[in-house]
Simulated assay, not measured.
Amino acid sequence: MIKRLLKLAACVAPMVLAVGCASNKPAAYDYTAFKAAKPRSILVLPPLNNSPEVNAGNSVYAQVTYPLAEAGYYVLPVALVGETFKQNGMTVAADIHALPPAKLQEIFGADAGLYITITKYGSTYTVLDSVVVVAAEARLVDLKSGTVLWTGAASASSNEGGNNGGGGLIGALVAAAVKQVINSTTDQSHPIAGVASTRLLSAGYNNGLLYGPRSAKYATQ
């Protein structure tokens, strides 16, 4: 009886491990619509800011062009885009996001629009630490048809890699208080937003953006 149970356990264990591994692996993104649309130019809309930090939108907006250009796309200059919306009385990101895609295509002539939503931005204070976190989600939409070509999400934290040091409990409390003062008096979130933007919009990663036509890797995907 014991031998039979051991043999059964030996057979079941690999199955359990396989199921566990499969459940942890994200499903492959369906790029059918993306590849059919073949976008060459991208209009980045002013980000929708769902964080309490008023400067979050401008911080993220200023750092999205580089990873998209590196991925092989022509990106409409965000300063020009923002000024165009302003001249037309559109200054609220939520109102801009609500515009019909076809109208955006008519005005700017871009193939696709990138809609970014900031979900976290700023420092969070706990008993033993102060951590800066930036997180955002994005949708790439075909401006001619309104079809969603790709969605993604990414985040970055100032605490990545750990911050364990000496000093015991008192030292940790003092360090956390000092970090909180620094984070609240200077914009420590801005460089973290750059990391999050790069993770969100760089091409070539699992379920990330595809390379654009200006990239040498465009034909290989």
Score class of each variant (00 low, 15 high):
Val44Leu: 09
Val60Glu: 00
Asn183Lys: 04
Ala216Glu: 13
Lys25Arg: 10
Val19Lys: 00
Ser184Asn: 15
Thr84Asn: 13
Leu114Gln: 08
Leu201Ala: 07
Ile182Glu: 13
Leu114Pro: 07
Asn49Asp: 14
Arg139Tyr: 01
Gly165Phe: 03
Val134Ala: 03
Ala69Ile: 09
Gly122Thr: 09
Gln221Tyr: 10
Leu45Gln: 06
Pro67Phe: 10
Leu201Asp: 08
Ile170Glu: 09
Ile2Glu: 02
Leu43Met: 07
Ala9Leu: 15
Ala176Arg: 01
Lys38His: 13
Ala176Leu: 04
Gly161Arg: 02
Pro77Met: 04
Thr185Ile: 11
Ser189Tyr: 09
Pro101Asn: 08
Gly167Thr: 01
Thr124Pro: 00
Thr186His: 07
Lys120Ser: 06
Gln188Val: 11
Tyr115Trp: 05
Tyr73Asp: 05
Val141Cys: 02
Leu99Trp: 05
Gln105Val: 03
Val54Gly: 00
Phe34Met: 10
Ser189Gln: 14
Arg4Met: 05
Ser157Trp: 00
Val16Ser: 02
Gly82Ala: 11
Leu5Asn: 11
Ser51Leu: 08
Ser189Asp: 09
Gly122Tyr: 08
Ala138His: 01
Val132Thr: 13
Ile96Asp: 06
Asn50Ser: 06
Val60Phe: 08
Val195Cys: 00
Ser215Cys: 04
Trp150Val: 06
Gln105His: 14
Gly167Pro: 03
Ala22Lys: 05
Lys144Thr: 02
